[in-house]
């Protein structure tokens, strides 16, 4: 079944903005985690996850996002989330991901908060 996942990175000043696109499940985790690791390895310490292209996240995808948070915490990086759908924001609150990164309605709002 086609439910392809991709992830794009854009550097906006000192903020690395990640654009995951598609269904965040176990397969998505396999590309998100190394991408995130590369950013940290290159010294990125301000990371914004823009979820505008993500309609669904399942619990296996949540586990992958936890890996990102773990990596970020170990590297003293700051993570923010933007453009979460209503259901995905609800999931983030239920899991407790909002304790490890602030949620912003838009990318612009999140970028302003970083400055």
């Amino acid at each position: 079944m086609a439910a392809d996942f991709s992830i794009e990175i854009q550097q906006k000043d000192d903020v690395s903005v990640l654009y995951p696109n598609g269904y965040i499940d176990f397969e998505a985790r396999q590309s998100m985690v190394p991408t995130f690791h590369d950013i940290l390895a290159k010294g990125g310490r301000k990371i914004l996850l823009n979820f505008s292209g993500v309609k669904k996240i399942n619990s296996m995808g949540i586990a992958g996002i936890l890996e990102l948070i773990e990596q970020a915490t170990k590297s003293s990086a700051v993570v923010k989330y933007s453009n979460l759908s209503r259901m995905n924001e609800k999931l983030f609150k239920m899991i407790g991901l909002t304790e490890y990164g602030t949620v912003h309605e838009s990318e612009d709002e999140a970028l302003k908060e970083f400055r």
Binding site: S59, M60, I62, A63, G64, L66, E67, L91, M94, I95
Partner: peptide, 8 residues
């Protein structure tokens, strides 16, 4: 890091 399904 799994094990969230039942809670959800």
């Amino acid at each position: 890091k799994r094990g969230w399904g039942l809670m959800l």
